[in-house]
């Protein structure tokens, strides 16, 4: 469902510290599959995910989402696509401090202007499914790593995205928590969602639920299987 052709991305363009994070990527992401990107840090896998997830625009090259070229869309429309199509789980979970878990889950839906009561109901439902129901009213900063991640997953799912993107999801978790996370991934896959992850973790790359593994180094794809 997502096609990348010749995607390049530069940072600090035109300045002394110019740096090309991606040097020409061709890639196809299949719908309903779990894909893992692996490689050493600085290999460009996170940058690639930001291109795929409409968080940023490539400096050159094409990104196609379901046959629609989105590589030259302005941010306004990119955001529109992003919030309806993608859900993000960040490495540090990136929950907002000072508000409760359930409010954190609801935040992505605020600008959409849906009914508030229904939204709250949906957020509680998601938290219940992820066994976070009892912690729904806890402040985000009181949650443990695993709990915070499940809140982050619930937040990623609140707008019912087709694609879930997780950046180093197991980096801050112990093995038992990581296994639990992979169970959640399997469940999301069963729901028909496409899942993209970056990971160093061999546990993730070799998990049974993973369909494809893409290995990257220095901004190019070295192996895809």
């Amino acid at each position: 469902m997502i096609h990348l052709t010749g995607v390049k991305k530069a940072f600090n363009q035109g300045r002394a510290n110019e740096f090309w994070a991606l040097k020409g990527i061709d890639l196809h992401v299949a719908q309903g599959k779990v894909t893992v990107f692996r490689g050493p840090s600085g290999s460009g896998k996170t940058t690639l995910l930001t291109m795929v997830g409409c968080l940023a625009r490539p400096t050159s090259g094409r990104v196609k989402l379901k046959e629609r070229d989105i590589s030259s869309l302005p941010e306004r429309f990119l955001t529109d696509i992003r919030r309806s199509t993608f859900g993000f789980v960040f490495q540090n979970f990136n929950l907002l401090k000072g508000i409760t878990a359930v409010e954190n889950v609801m935040v992505p839906a605020y600008p959409l202007g849906g009914d508030h009561g229904a939204l709250r109901h949906r957020a509680h439902e998601l938290l219940d499914r992820l066994e976070m129901g009892p912690k729904a009213k806890s402040m985000a900063e009181w949650l443990s790593g695993g709990e915070a991640q499940r809140v982050a997953i619930a937040r990623a799912l609140i707008n019912d995205p087709q694609v879930v993107i997780a950046d180093e999801p197991t980096a801050n978790l112990d093995s038992a928590r990581s296994a639990q996370f992979l169970d959640i991934v399997a469940e999301m896959k069963r729901d028909g969602r496409t899942i993209l992850m970056t990971s160093h973790d061999p546990l993730v790359a070799e998990a049974g639920v993973v369909d494809h593994v893409v290995t990257m180094r220095d901004g190019v794809v070295v192996e895809a299987r």
Binding site: R76, T79, R82, R83, F88, F90, A156, N159
Partner: peptide, 18 residues
């Protein structure tokens, strides 16, 4: 902290004008 918050909001799907 505020900058981080705005970054998170934008990442989870808030538009600049939001």
């Amino acid at each position: 902290e505020e900058k981080r918050e705005i970054g998170i909001l934008k990442a989870v799907g808030w538009e600049t004008s939001d």
